[in-house]
Design a protein around this nucleic acid. Sequence first.
DNA 1: CGACTATTTCGACGGCCATCGAACACGAGG
DNA 2: CCTCGTGTTCGATGGCCGTCGAAATAGTCG
Lengths: 106, 106
Amino acid sequence: MTRYPQAPAALEVTAVLHALADPVRLDLVRQLSESGTAIACGRFDAPVAKSTLSHHFRILREAGIIATHREGGQALNVLRTAELEASFPGLLAAILPGPQRVARAG
Amino acid sequence: MTRYPQAPAALEVTAVLHALADPVRLDLVRQLSESGTAIACGRFDAPVAKSTLSHHFRILREAGIIATHREGGQALNVLRTAELEASFPGLLAAILPGPQRVARAG
DNA sequence: CGACTATTTCGACGGCCATCGAACACGAGG
DNA sequence: CCTCGTGTTCGATGGCCGTCGAAATAGTCG
């Protein structure tokens, strides 16, 4: 079975920021966040080749931003919201909303 | 009077994250945040050459993270806290208190 | 003006990164 | 067993980035 390189014990801020600094990866994280559920690698909407997508998932995984586990024939990805919130509270909330989105009350 | 290339009208999230993803730059921002005041380029504590430091300030400036204005032979840098908070509320609070430090030479 | 300090620019160098297509691995189903 | 769908790995490529020292620029002060 495929062994996924697990996230580091402690999330490194530079690794997390670097992972999120790429437009493609940031969009992947946005899709995960908005869906709220696990998404298979092939179900993402991204303008890059499959191999490139796999590379991006690796970066996100090694930074500790997402976790991947195989189920059936596919690899399901989930956002590690709790760990991210524990290490950098408010980070996702700060950067995930699109820059043109207007903050709404409530 | 020296004209510094000013920050874009709207802060770009990928540019901001990329700027903060470098350990040296993140440390510069930390020093600015902790001091709470303007700091001249030459008074920062960083393990790189002055020319490299100038390069890092440029990246931070163009991302809209800091602002620089000349005053009496030196260039004073300030964190653009208000603009950052307006565009990405909670971002600085999420990543600045981290335990990461740049190892200094010597 | 001339010297001195502070910062930027220049040119070069090495390394890392995003990207791709092709080939490989792995699990599920016929 | 063979095939198909899904991800990953490999090798190559082009570009961007961090780094430096040296030279250029800017502003201050005598």
